[in-house]
Amino acid sequence: MLSVAALRAHLLAAGLAGPVATSREESLRSYRLFAARDPRVLIGLDPEWGWSERDLLALMADKCGVSADPAHRSGPDVIDPERTLGALDAFAGRLAAAAARRAPVLFGTGHPHRLLGFYADLADALSAAGCDVLVPAQGRCVDIVTRFGVRTYNLDYVRGVALVREPGARGEGRETGAHTHSPLPVRLALEAAADGGGPLPELVVGDHGWVCGAGQLGIEAIGLADTDDPALFVGEAEGRVSVAVPLDDAVRSDYYRPLTRYVLNRACLSQ
């Protein structure tokens, strides 16, 4: 069993919390764009409240532990490991609740190179607990706006976790895919589930648009978010995201393995 102290030490040593690779400049730019309601940063959320840059900075200081000083404008951003630990406990609690009622669950990630293994292990555990891990719209096309223009991707699943691939990419089931913040993949998956007459997820687990897109549609959603992803924390503050875990979402994939063990243990889902 991984102790709280050991996980705290790992978070700091791996750069998952403490000073992180995300820069203060990146975070402040995201808060500025969110305040202007730029869809690239809203990632599927339609905020009910008016959020100024100062409001967002105060929220992120509370949720993540970043500096609340607006004059602090450069250098690495910072995540308080205690906030990460507290959010991981809440995250585990929602997984445990889903397992207890054998709820259908949908997993999806916009960071497949980094986070797919983390989510896949959770999906395996929930499946073993009797949950239906959904895979709707597999192989379907989705058009996503990128900085290079509109691109068409294919929705795929690896070990029960959704991701998008560029068209023509070979190797179904491989742990490769595109980085995206878009909510369109989760909307496509949910539409396909509804049209197919199958169950809709009672819980969506993931990041970026997967969480915000599902939460905006009234489906319980939990996920991971960096300091430059204010949408998940706004969604949490407004009651449309159940849990947003603050951490660096782009470190080496193996650095998330201790988090997997911790969460599964807390959720009483260790196999």
Score class of each variant (00 low, 15 high):
E236N: 06
L217V: 08
A225P: 03
G218E: 05
L224Q: 03
G239I: 01
D229V: 11
D226L: 03
I222L: 11
V241T: 05
C212L: 15
E202N: 11
E191M: 13
L188F: 10
D195G: 15
R187Y: 11
D228A: 15
D229E: 14
G197A: 13
D207F: 13
C212G: 05
Q216S: 13
F233H: 01
V205N: 08
I222A: 09
A189L: 11
C212E: 15
L224S: 02
L188S: 05
G209I: 07
G235S: 10
D228P: 03
G215P: 04
T227H: 05
L232C: 10
D207S: 11
P201M: 14
V211D: 03
E202L: 15
L232V: 09
R240Q: 10
W210D: 03
E191K: 15
L188E: 09
V241I: 09
G239P: 03
V211T: 07
A192S: 14
A194I: 00
P230G: 06
F233M: 01
E238S: 09
E202H: 12
R187F: 11
G239M: 00
G218W: 05
L200S: 11
P199W: 12
F233K: 00
D195L: 15
A192L: 10
C212Y: 07
I222N: 02
F233E: 02
G198V: 08
